[in-house]
Amino acid sequence: MTRNGPVALFFHALVVIFMLAPLVIVCLVAFTPENTLSLPTRGFSLRWFEAVFHHPDFVQSFWNSLWLAVLSATLAVALAVPASLAITRYEFPGRGFLNALFLSPLIIPHLVLGVAMLRLFAVVGAAGSFGWLVAAHMVIVTPYVMRLLIAAISGFDRSVEQAAFSLGASEATVFRRVTLPMILPGVTGGWLIAFINSFDELTMSIFITSPSTVTLPVRMYMYATESIDPMMAAVSALIIGITAVAVLLLDRVYGLDRILVGQQ
């Protein structure tokens, strides 16, 4: 039963239009047959999508971003699972500090992380290396994974593990057969949210990518500051498409509202 009056619904409609308008216009302009940024009033064309796939810089950046996101999300999950187990399950000196440290990238502006990483890479002579870029992305996506995992692990009935243990399972078996399957939605949800965040990241990456490791958002930023043509709209439309697929996946495996809004 919707209990919103007509004024409320009108307001709501304006908000929805406001939120969707910039995304919708990008997707429409991407199909323009013209040479300038304009709405496709004289028929639809895929020429700018074609142009993207033949633009070596965009193609290379796309693969860079994809690998970067896959690697950093996977490695972040691999580090975050044991770390969140330690934080939720044990009482040890420094636990509060570690918890704060692992979540700190959420409140440190990415710009600050960017200049800090740049300095570090300059000092250790690692500027432009893809490996260090992956490590930097792990830092910014780990808190998202940790938040989900900590929620998943603390909302977990320990007696289920005790039950498995009392039935004769070893510690390793309990983890493999009971703990891991039970936190799996948190793990996959965490991986996806980490993937999206890494794939989208601009502000930190712009400081620490080299010409050979430029990511897609950085490439787009550079491109948009120099020239504006419908190719930019086509890349953007592709990104919106990829994000939509990821969002639907995320909604399936974990529930998008649970990830974005938090545990009920």
Partner: peptide, 21 residues
Amino acid sequence: LVILAPLLVSVVVRAFGWSML
């Protein structure tokens, strides 16, 4: 979902959308 999902679209894309609008 409509209100929150744009959060997951790269900010470059959204800025570009506004520059066109």
